[in-house]
Design a protein around this nucleic acid. Sequence first.
DNA 1: CGGAAAAAAGGTCATTTGACCATATTTTCG
DNA 2: CGAAAATATGGTCAAATGACCTTTTTTCCG
Lengths: 192, 192
Amino acid sequence: MMHEFEIYLRAYINLNGGDLDRIWALAVPKAVRRNEFLLREGDICRHKTFVMNGLLRTFGKTADGNEHILQFSPEHSWTLDAESYDHQQPSSYNIAAIENSEVLLWSKADFDGLLADIPELKSLAEQLISRNIYSGRRRLLTALSATPEEKYHEFVQSFPGLLARLPLHMIASYLGISIKTLTRIRQAQLRR
Amino acid sequence: MMHEFEIYLRAYINLNGGDLDRIWALAVPKAVRRNEFLLREGDICRHKTFVMNGLLRTFGKTADGNEHILQFSPEHSWTLDAESYDHQQPSSYNIAAIENSEVLLWSKADFDGLLADIPELKSLAEQLISRNIYSGRRRLLTALSATPEEKYHEFVQSFPGLLARLPLHMIASYLGISIKTLTRIRQAQLRR
DNA sequence: CGGAAAAAAGGTCATTTGACCATATTTTCG
DNA sequence: CGAAAATATGGTCAAATGACCTTTTTTCCG
């Protein structure tokens, strides 16, 4: 089980064995079943989460009860609500498993310690944050400017591997379009 | 001119005089005239930018030539294209002045040096990045889920001071709706 | 395996939205 | 100041979209 995570880490940073062991020693493995929540809005996000395998989603709810997916987190990605985690305050978002998944959890206290002591890890964290900002910008521009069809194509291009693992209504939710519109787009594709 | 910037900095972090002087000494003041570009897509974003006064906008262009505003940067805020700046690679975005503005510029080399030497500044930078992520999430959720009317109200609530300084078509561009729709919303308000 | 639940697709219709155009008003700047 | 540009508003219309509902298909899980 270490194996997976070790491969991931080593792909990004050079760590000596001791640091790796320490990071690993503080990680709490957890199995999350399909549809189980890792975080519910109103709760405080207490952990950094690394997805070893499976697939999670982060979503917000609107007043009328609709769900809108902000992010998919497949294997070898991280997830949390940063605002809730950083300030240990109630979250506005939900994180739930789409597939049965295995994750690693670190408490904020533990992870802060690791970040302080292991510069390579700190640098990885900063890289992840940066990429988060870059992709967030692109996503926003798409949300503002693209037609539903363009959004769908961009999604397929960007996450070819996720397409087959997601129910369509979640893709629609992620794109901010109705499932009806998504179905129409896909039908139009077929007829070509 | 230092004054403005000093007030800003001191509001967020405690700096000894020497550090403040050093930050200031490396800053290049620049006046940007209305409609002038600070960054054009395709160019490399070479500076961190602090807006002393005035108002800038960051926007992307779609294939059909439409502009979509990602961010307004009024006085006492920072702006750049992080992706272009971090990797010194061509940008996909544009930054231009809406009002005549005065900004401070730091080259990446200089600012990296400051960040490395002044932990307080580093901590401020991290705070800014975090807030960027938080607000980006909220903005995305709004873009995905809100009606044009809700988007407009949220904008007015969030940036009451900007409303009077912006042409409506820029607000529409920021919200991802047509100016026609925005006009309709505002007319409906009046009639109540 | 089989029944129940979830997901996808299809039909219909009202509404919203944007495109296009013209016009009035304001602002800019030489 | 005054011409030109920018901005805001208004009208009209077609198209896209979502809401609601039903039917079919697939998936899940005991």
